[in-house]
């Protein structure tokens, strides 16, 4: 599924990064490589952008950028 479709609290692993040229390279530089675990932390009012946690830091991405990343769900964050 696309990363933009994750629900808040979901954890998933990256399988593929799409896009072309600059966008893709930027996402790869930020750590969205195959196998990386990402957690959907929240969404801005209106659903866009979404806040993602990966590799210990939080990042906000717009829906169209998040849609470039394919992920496979691996669970939900423990409620805290």
């Amino acid at each position: 599924m696309k990363m933009c479709d994750m629900k808040v609290g979901d954890i998933a692993a990256v399988t593929f990064v799409g896009g072309s040229g600059r966008e893709k390279t930027r996402l790869l530089d930020l750590g969205f490589v195959r196998g990386t675990s990402v957690t959907a932390v929240g969404r801005a009012p209106g659903g866009d952008p979404m806040e993602i946690n990966l590799r210990g830091y939080n990042l906000a991405l717009r829906r169209d950028s998040a849609a470039l990343i394919e992920v496979v769900p691996i669970g939900k964050a423990a409620a805290n």
Binding site: E23, L30, P49, Y57, N58, L59, A60, L61, R62, S65
Partner: peptide
């Protein structure tokens, strides 16, 4: 158009 990336520091 640059990709929009916003770091959310604590």
């Amino acid at each position: 158009k640059d990709i929009f990336v916003l770091e959310m520091p604590p």
